[in-house]
Design a protein around this nucleic acid. Structure first.
Length: 575
RNA sequence: CGGGGCGUAGCGCAGUUUGGUAGCGCGUUUGGUUCGGGACCAAAAGGUCGCAUGUUCAAAUCAUGUCGCCCCGACCA
């Protein structure tokens, strides 16, 4: 490919609305173009990158006995009504009508389509297990797309669905998929990606993992234990706490606390540590607007995912109206208005001598003791873990909180979809059973952007050889020099004949422009032919990451370039 | 959906306070000089100032409405 003919502009200035580097570099390098909120078109360099990522994914999926299929983008709503998700999923699901007025949806995930495809096939236990996957466009009408390709509305995803006749078989396959994912991310150039335990949501307590590229610009919060290697998404991280109790209960006393509404204010006012307070966080159920008050230790934060899972329904931060008779800022566990659900975090279990709201404007209690003043309440885990918190696995005070981009997930689904959609098989005993499913996703574009985010410098991306848009970037300096140009042309032809993917820049532009464009394209190997080098009978060979920079005699050029290409390609292999 | 910010040439921005001929840098085109990290000189093309309504002799500028984008939050199979 000649760079001169490559469609798509590269430019110097960082677009003002880019907040992360991969977004800015992929626009500046002519990889993609904004079309609408959360919707992009790809130019050739990005398309070549995603094709290579897809090829790696196909190889690894095929290696664990996956079969590639393809589902439709537009699906009849009736399929989603079978599973119940036409109602349960919100406006993220794009709903539309065809010319006959039949309701349709744009596929945002394909569990329904997968079950529909195989439910007749899978009527006998002898057909199991099997896995089907596709690489295809998804559309999710996200509330807030952001960060370039990291969070978009239309995107390419590899989604896989496996079907099993026992939980043990699912778990065996899940483990194979777990390792296939590790190979995929390693081969794509981000071996530092880690699997973390993730929240299974309302899908029924099954195991799931998310694959996270740890980076400060990530959207997800990750908890890791450097002592034992335990890792989890904040949403799913269990809080382990050592509650402290004073030896003697103090008397319950109502105190006047005018204007002291936040827990910090109250504790400062009463000269108490925040840990000796019981704070209230108020939510409302989305369906009924019923109030839910969560009480937890003053220094902790609510984990809304845990709360939603416990309640089995969605909630939102409360809008407190006078009719609710809730004394905002003075809410406490004693004397809550009728109709308000109170929940208690484990951080409060067995504690005493706390300060808390008195459910009366401008008043708090001190000396509140759970066992004495509110016996018999149930405590559950509703709080976020903290930096330095206790690891649920090894028990050490070692937890570390960081950020990550979710590039893939794997999920033990269970029978939710086979049951709701009536997929059954006959087992050895002639009994009807529901197959157990697993599902496994990877965002292809997000993975490309994540690699860029993990491997770039101020001048552009540094693509790993395995997914680079081209393998070698050949620069012909001073293309007006007939000898140099002729030599560069011949080198270009020779490399192509050896099966090297070359992007060839023989434009009559200044060195600065040529190098800047090469940096933005991020091709791992750069070859420079120039009058200066050719006079010494050499070319210049360098890697984009600057680890290698050497002069190579013209006679050895092709062999050395091919060898370097092969070496860098081999470095992208999985363990 | 709530809070904040912004819409002026392909990109980055000034001009808006105080209404009076549409500007700058990059990029693009042409000619010339240069040539190893986004060169220089000269000429040129390119704009319904997001949209609508209003105020005014006159609106990029003022008012009202509306659409879009970005950030924070909510939501997220």
């Amino acid at each position: 490919m000649k760079l001169e003919r490559l469609v798509g502009d590269r430019f110097k200035e960082r677009p003002s609305d880019c907040v992360i580097d991969s977004h800015a570099l992929m626009l500046r390098g002519g990889y993609m173009k904004y079309v609408a909120n959360g919707i992009f078109s790809s130019f050739m360099p990005l398309r070549r990158i995603t094709r290579k990522i897809e090829a790696i994914i196909r190889e690894e999926m095929d290696a664990i006995d996956g079969q590639e299929v393809q589902f439709p983008v537009v699906l009849p709503a009736s399929l989603w009504e079978e599973s119940g998700r036409y109602q349960s999923v919100g406006s993220e699901l794009m709903r539309l009508s065809d010319r006959n007025g039949s309701p349709m949806v744009l596929g945002m995930t394909h569990e329904e389509a997968a079950v529909q495809l195989v439910r007749e096939y899978g009527q006998s236990y002898t057909k199991y297990p099997f896995m089907i996957y596709q690489i295809q466009t998804k559309f999710r009408d996200e509330a807030r797309p952001r960060a370039g390709l990291i969070r978009v509305r239309e995107f390419t995803m590899k989604d896989a669905y496996s079907f099993h006749t026992s939980q043990e078989d699912l778990e065996r396959y899940y483990a194979r998929c777990y390792h296939a994912y590790e190979r995929i991310f390693a081969r794509a150039g981000i071996p530092e990606t880690v699997a973390v335990l993730s929240d299974s949501g309302m899908m029924g307590g099954s195991v799931s993992h998310e694959y996270m590229l740890l980076t400060p610009v990530g959207e997800d919060t990750i908890v890791t234990c450097p002592e034992c290697g335990w890792r989890a998404n904040m949403e799913a991280a269990e809080s382990i706490l050592e509650n402290e109790k004073d030896a003697e209960d103090a008397p319950l006393t109502q105190v006047h606390t005018p204007g002291q509404q936040t827990i910090e204010d109250v504790c400062n006012f009463l000269k108490l540590p925040v840990e000796k307070s019981c704070k209230a966080v108020v939510y409302q159920k989305n369906a009924t607007d019923e109030y839910v008050v969560l009480f937890l230790r003053g220094d902790l934060e609510a984990n809304e995912t845990k709360l939603t899972n416990f309640l089995g329904e969605a909630i939102h931060p409360a809008v407190i109206t006078p009719e609710s008779r809730i004394a905002a800022g003075y809410i406490g566990p004693l004397g809550l208005p009728a109709g308000v659900t109170a929940l208690f975090d484990v951080s409060l279990a067995g504690t005493n001598n706390l300060c808390c709201g008195a459910n009366r404007e401008e008043y708090h209690y001190t000396g509140f003791c759970f066992e004495r003043d509110l016996p018999g309440v149930a405590f559950h885990d509703f709080s976020k873990v903290k930096q330095g918190g206790i690891c649920p696995k090894c028990g050490k005070h070692a937890l570390s909180v960081s950020r990550g981009i979710e590039v893939g997930n794997i999920f033990q689904l269970g029978t939710k979809y086979t049951k709701s959609m009536g997929m059954q098989y006959l087992d050895q005993n002639g009994q009807l059973q529901y197959p157990i499913m697993g599902c496994y996703g990877i965002g292809v574009g997000r993975l490309a952007a994540s690699v860029c985010e993990a491997h770039h410098d101020d001048y552009g991306p540094i693509w790993p050889m395995s997914i680079a848009p081209w393998q070698v970037h050949l620069c012909c300096m001073r293309a007006d020099n007939v000898e140099v140009h002729a030599y560069a042309d011949s080198l270009y032809a020779a490399l192509q004949a050896r099966g090297v993917e070359v992007i060839y820049d023989d434009r009559a532009v200044s060195a600065g422009v040529m190098f800047s464009d090469a940096d933005l394209l991020g091709v791992p190997v750069r070859v420079i032919a120039s009058p200066r080098n050719l006079k010494d009978g050499c070319i210049e060979l360098a890697t984009r990451d600057k680890r290698i920079s050497e002069k190579v005699p013209v006679a050895d050029a092709v062999e050395r370039i091919v060898a370097l290409r092969d070496e860098l390609l081999a470095a992208c292999k999985a363990e």
